[in-house]
Design a protein around this nucleic acid. Structure first.
Lengths: 229, 229
DNA sequence: CCAAAAGTGTTATCGCTACACCCATGA
DNA sequence: TCATGGGTGTAGCGATAACACTTTTGG
């Protein structure tokens, strides 16, 4: 069967993951010190080669799990990079994914073992190859997307407060939001469940915890209305 | 150098193009009758294999030009498909692009020579492999995107009327729009230049021609405001 | 003069912005 | 009691939707 395509060139395919997390009030990226040539010792995204029995999405999941221990997280392909000399080691086509994860759920041991670290999005070191471009593209995409889809909740713990959520959106959108209006907007969507518990870490009065209600969101979404910040 | 990656598997990579056009009041796709196995005679998107000295974007442009004669059109990568059995002939990873073009600017000879035809978006035939999924994904993307970027103008002739533009948006969004409000909205953006000429094809009174003003749009865009339907 | 499409005007309503204000509590 | 962050109320503005209306012209 494969004779139809004989003579066509073949390529190495890799997958690179831009892994986002959120801590306190900073958006962070999980980066790794590269442990093999080329450019050993430099920082890079998590990556790996596509294996014979895998599709790209599976490879991305494998890579994410390898470095964080997590499964079933928000993980999306966003672009495939194919510049001829993007990797000086060889012609490698790389499919890039971004993931949104809850830092506190990651396997710290695993992260440490693989020389990975959470780095502030505005204190990025030099990255190898075209990895900076990948990061920038992923950032642009989540900045746009977070306005229309409830991405934010992927980055926060199960229980979170409205001020926390607001700080997250401020970190993503890189601008201050009016707290009164943000609160009204979010609550008016009716996709949050208020808990009886308070978080006193950031203030004396304490802020009520909320939970994202996936069921309500799905109803709202299928009935035509839209999440929109 | 390439010894770093020795032992990793290599893959065939193809590029498939979802080519959109607009005629009268219908959104259309350029499809082709496949002239070689497998599934010879079936309909498919325009595609081809990535060549050694190319990057994906160049391959997509090459394919688009081959079938339409056009260069410098709106052409964007949107997803890379890698299901193990997506092509029964061999393991092929396919990067999909969508293009928005002005049908009247295409090279009719070329289209005909390659057995390509413009097919109504709501009268699609069976497509090979996962090409239908590609079409659906591209449609979703342009439906979303056309609300925030002036995509519409890519599909219309240089000179077009407001009612024509409205019909296009109705075809993309698949719903009727109020003509009074649509007109006000579009004109309020001040990105159209009114011409002195009228189009009498669709009415006795005739509708004034307009032109998209890229310069004004860029100003508007960089100054922060947004195109939004 | 009528039908039909192009194009204008009017109004009520909704959502957003900005900002003033009140609340709870630990130090 | 006061500083601090959490949380509420409200007036004004601008955009939108709905729809009634006028204009133009070929048949």
């Amino acid at each position: 069967m494969s004779s139809f395509y004989s003579g066509e060139p073949k390529y190495l395919i890799s997958v690179d993951c831009v892994i986002f997390g959120f801590d306190k009030d900073k958006l962070k990226l999980l980066l790794v010190k590269r442990m093999r040539p080329p450019q050993e010792g430099d920082w890079s995204l998590m990556g790996g080669f596509l294996q014979k029995d895998e599709q790209l999405e599976q490879a991305a999941q494998r890579i994410l799990t390898k470095w964080t221990g997590l499964e079933q997280v928000f993980l999306e392909q966003f672009y495939t990079f194919s510049e001829l000399d993007r990797d000086p080691g060889a012609r490698v086509i790389s499919s890039a994914f971004y993931a949104l994860i809850k830092i506190e759920e990651t396997d710290k041991e695993l992260t440490k073992k693989h020389n990975a670290e959470w780095i502030d999005i505005d204190k990025l070191p030099e990255l190898i190859f075209d990895h900076l471009r990948m990061v920038q593209m992923a950032l642009e995409i989540i900045r746009h997307k977070c306005r229309f889809e409830p991405l934010g909740f992927e980055l926060l713990p199960e229980k979170f407060t409205i001020p926390q959520l607001q700080k997250l959106y401020e970190a993503i959108l890189q601008r201050k939001l009016d707290n009164a209006n943000f609160r009204k907007k979010i609550l008016s969507m009716k996709i949050l469940k208020k808990l009886d518990e308070k978080d006193k870490e950031f203030s004396k009065r304490g802020a009520f915890y909320y939970q994202f209600d996936q069921v309500k969101y799905n109803k709202l979404n299928t009935s035509g209305s839209l999440f929109e910040i």
